Simulated assay, not measured.
Amino acid sequence: MKKKFLDIGSEKLAYLDIGTSKEVMVLVHGNMSSGIHYKPLIERFKDDYRIIAPDMRGFGDSSYNNRYNDLEELADDLLLLLDKLNIHEYHLAGWSTGGAVALKIAAKRPKEVKNVILIESCSYKGYPVFKKDENGQPIVGSYYATKEELALDPVQVAPMENIFNTGASAYMTAVWDQLIYTVNKPTPEDAELYMSETMKEKCIVDVDWALTRFNMSNDFNGVTKGDGSIKDVVCPVISFWSEKDIVVLEYMVDETVAALNNCKKVKLPNSGHSPLLDQPDLLAKEILEFIK
């Protein structure tokens, strides 16, 4: 699981490059994670596919020389990486925030992406961060107008930025246990590995702001007007949603599935926001059947 590095202009991206098959699978991680978090799928796919699992800008061991406002900027980073690696045909998977990045890549390079695998992906209309009332509860439908305002959010953003800035990994472990590891827990060895990768994140405000602005629909999502690019995703898509996911809600998955012309939804039982950990064998089986 040793990372490689490649310069893409003003940034340097870290990535895993595992396996020697001519069939390539690109794995795009989510927020508070890195390519390393795909370890369960990498172990199951490495003999049949060449796996490319990058750390996006500001995550893991990749650089963060330039701030960003849109997930499309992260998609462009990954396309530069793939171009430099001379990879122009691949299966594309995205977990959580990575699902949004994967959809944008598929829209921009329809002739290169063979299919898209969405794993607990946020909606094609983004992921909202609502303003909070005096009790810290979300005021549904009330959005932050600027990145600076969102950075002060007292529940979802400011506390997380403080955890990263202070290196408070014990608090971050509690966050994962409460929100993500709601069914199974990783082994102590894997938990240490994953948390060390999580705590490398440097861009929490940027990625939260970009998630609220992400919008491939034709509608206004409360923060920004969509660019309509969901229509440019023409490859087959499979979208996984776990019945115990409390981070990405089922309606978010359903609205993306409904917006695509060729999309299959699969519900995973007894699984939370990380089916990579909760249902790795079933997830891998469904992905392989979909691809083949």
Score class of each variant (00 low, 15 high):
F5H: 11
L6D: 00
D7C: 07
G9Y: 14
S10L: 13
L16E: 12
D17R: 01
S21D: 08
E23Y: 05
V24G: 00
M25V: 10
L27V: 09
G30N: 13
H37G: 05
Y38R: 04
Y38D: 02
R44M: 08
D48A: 13
Y49A: 07
R50F: 04
R50S: 10
I51N: 01
I52H: 06
A53C: 07
A53K: 05
M56C: 06
F59M: 12
S62V: 15
Y64G: 00
Y68P: 03
D70Q: 10
E72W: 14
E73L: 14
L74M: 10
L74N: 04
D77W: 06
N86Q: 11
E89D: 09
Y90L: 07
Y90K: 06
S96D: 11
G98C: 06
V101I: 15
I105N: 00
I105Q: 03
K108R: 13
R109Y: 07
P110L: 03
V113P: 01
I119Y: 08
C122A: 14
Y124H: 15
K125H: 08
K125L: 12
G126D: 02
Y127E: 05
Y127Q: 11
F130V: 01
I139P: 09
K147W: 04
P154N: 11
V155Q: 13
V155N: 12
P159R: 08
T166K: 12
L179E: 11
I180L: 13
T182F: 01
V183C: 07
P186A: 01
T187K: 03
P188F: 00
E189D: 14
D190E: 10
T198S: 10
D206T: 00
D208V: 04
T212Y: 00
M216C: 06
F220S: 01
G222F: 03
V223I: 05
K225Q: 15
G226D: 05
S229M: 14
I230A: 03
V234W: 08
P236R: 10
I238V: 15
W241H: 13
V247P: 01
L249Y: 13
M252C: 12
M252T: 09
D254K: 12
E255M: 06
A258K: 12
L260Y: 04
N262T: 11
C263S: 12
K264T: 15
L268W: 05
P269L: 03
P269E: 10
N270C: 02
G272P: 08
S274T: 10
L276M: 12
L276I: 07
L276G: 04
L277E: 13
Q279T: 11
